[in-house]
Amino acid sequence: MTVRVDGVDYEFSSLEEAVRFALKMAKSKGAEVQLHNGTFHVE
């Protein structure tokens, strides 16, 4: 599972870890999280 934040990809071994990271980053940026074909994008 890959989480992309500001064009940088972060790899996670589990969906749970990836979701937690994506939500944490989105909250800190006041951004939204989108899921596309198994890849999260924080914008």
Rank of each mutant, 00 (worst) to 15 (best):
M1T: 10
M1E: 01
M1K: 06
M1I: 14
M1R: 08
M1V: 12
T2V: 11
T2A: 05
V3Q: 00
V3I: 05
V3F: 03
V3E: 00
V3K: 00
V3S: 00
V3L: 02
R4G: 01
R4S: 08
R4M: 06
R4I: 07
R4F: 04
R4Q: 06
V5D: 00
V5F: 07
V5G: 00
V5M: 05
V5T: 01
V5C: 14
V5P: 00
V5N: 01
D6M: 07
D6F: 09
D6W: 05
D6P: 00
D6N: 11
D6C: 14
D6G: 08
D6R: 03
G7D: 05
G7W: 03
G7N: 05
G7A: 02
G7M: 04
V8P: 00
V8K: 08
V8I: 11
V8Y: 06
V8S: 02
V8Q: 07
D9F: 10
D9M: 08
D9K: 07
D9I: 12
D9V: 10
D9S: 08
Y10Q: 01
Y10L: 02
Y10M: 02
Y10C: 10
Y10T: 01
Y10P: 00
Y10S: 00
E11Y: 14
E11I: 13
E11C: 15
E11G: 06
E11W: 14
E11M: 13
E11A: 12
F12G: 00
F12K: 00
F12V: 00
S13L: 08
S13W: 07
S13K: 09
S13I: 07
S13G: 09
S14C: 14
S14I: 03
S14V: 03
S14L: 02
S14Q: 02
S14A: 03
L15E: 04
L15R: 10
L15V: 11
L15A: 08
L15C: 15
L15I: 12
L15S: 05
L15N: 04
L15T: 08
L15D: 01
E16Y: 09
E16D: 09
E16C: 15
E16W: 12
E16R: 09
E16M: 08
E16F: 09
E16G: 06
E16H: 06
E17M: 05
E17C: 15
E17F: 02
E17V: 03
E17A: 09
E17Q: 06
E17G: 02
E17R: 03
E17D: 10
A18Y: 02
A18G: 01
A18T: 01
A18Q: 00
A18E: 00
A18D: 00
V19T: 04
V19S: 03
V19F: 14
V19L: 14
V19D: 02
V19Y: 15
R20I: 09
R20M: 09
R20S: 09
R20P: 00
R20D: 12
R20E: 13
F21I: 01
F21C: 12
F21A: 02
F21K: 01
F21Q: 01
A22V: 06
A22L: 08
A22M: 07
A22I: 08
A22G: 01
A22R: 02
A22E: 01
L23D: 13
L23A: 09
L23Q: 12
L23W: 08
L23S: 10
L23F: 08
L23C: 15
K24Q: 13
K24N: 10
K24D: 13
K24V: 10
K24F: 12
K24A: 13
K24E: 14
K24W: 11
M25L: 06
M25H: 05
A26I: 08
A26E: 04
A26D: 02
A26Y: 05
A26R: 04
A26V: 05
A26H: 04
A26Q: 05
A26S: 06
A26T: 04
A26G: 04
A26M: 08
A26N: 03
A26F: 06
K27F: 10
K27N: 10
K27V: 10
K27C: 15
K27R: 11
K27H: 10
K27M: 11
S28M: 14
K29R: 13
K29V: 10
K29D: 06
G30H: 10
G30A: 07
G30E: 05
G30V: 05
G30I: 05
G30K: 08
G30D: 06
A31C: 14
A31S: 08
A31E: 05
A31H: 10
A31W: 13
A31F: 10
A31Q: 06
A31N: 05
E32F: 13
E32L: 13
E32M: 13
E32S: 14
E32A: 10
E32P: 06
E32G: 08
V33P: 03
V33M: 05
V33G: 03
V33S: 03
V33W: 03
Q34V: 15
Q34C: 15
Q34T: 14
Q34A: 09
Q34L: 12
Q34M: 12
Q34I: 14
Q34K: 12
Q34G: 06
Q34H: 15
L35I: 12
H36T: 07
H36F: 12
H36W: 08
H36S: 07
H36R: 14
H36E: 05
H36M: 11
N37Q: 04
N37G: 09
N37I: 10
N37Y: 07
N37P: 03
G38E: 07
G38Q: 04
G38S: 04
G38R: 03
G38D: 08
G38I: 09
G38M: 08
T39V: 15
T39H: 15
T39Q: 13
T39P: 09
T39F: 12
F40N: 10
F40V: 14
F40D: 10
F40M: 14
F40R: 11
F40C: 15
F40W: 10
F40H: 11
H41S: 04
H41I: 15
H41M: 08
H41R: 02
H41E: 13
V42T: 09
V42D: 11
V42N: 10
V42C: 15
V42F: 06
V42E: 12
V42P: 11
V42Q: 07
E43C: 15
E43I: 15
E43F: 12
E43T: 13
E43D: 11
